[in-house]
Amino acid sequence: MTVSNSRKLHFKIYRYDPDKDAKPYMQDIEIEVPATDRKLLDAMVTLKAKDDSIAFRRSCREGVCGSDAMNINGKNGLACLTDLSSFPEGKPIILRPLPGLPVIRDLIVDMTQFFKQYHSIKPYLINNDPLPERERLQSPEDREELNGLYECILCACCTTACPSFWWNPDKFVGPAGLLAAYRFIADTRDQATSERLDNLEDPYRLFRCHTIMNCVDVCPKGLNPTKAIGKIKDMMVKRAI
């Protein structure tokens, strides 16, 4: 590969190693990446090959695992789905860890609180009927209802973009958790709908959502947690009146 086929990138990366650094700092890094690097993650892997002290999570590199969620130029997203060509020439690419969660090192955050909220909505099918011989069937219309819900990869882009979660991470379920909650509330095979609604009817767990829709804005899978939250509220109204 010739140099003319490469592209020069200027990164500003959040660096923090609690063993060495008293406090976090932003590091300027300039790097030549080959033209074959199409996505931000490709460039970061090239960068990591040169300086292996930079820590970030990644795995599938195709937007399925959700590991490489980070704050890219101020907006949460997946590095593997972000085109390098989408960055304006001559401006630095600013990378920070997902906001609102404790930083373990550099771009790696502690997702404990996120998954605690996710688990609190019981993200599994609850059905006490005896297991059928093959599978629990649904009509195509009922199955349709799960579209836009089951695709969530739990990257935490939405939840960590939500000010209500920043403020009450221990009490507000967050958009990802609520989307997953509605995924099971909407599932005709699930028998715990009423318990699920009871579990969410709380001024903090559900009603901290003030519909600012940051979650919709950042979701790398194009999902709409606000709509799911609205549907949960609709069901609660339907149940109550």
């Binding site: 009490k171 009871d198 009817e201 709380d202 009603f207 509220k233 609660m236 109550a240």
Partner: peptide, 12 residues
């Protein structure tokens, strides 16, 4: 941390 006050819908 305690949550689960079971209200909120009416106010919303």
């Amino acid at each position: 941390i305690v949550v689960g006050a079971h209200y909120g819908l009416k106010d919303w």
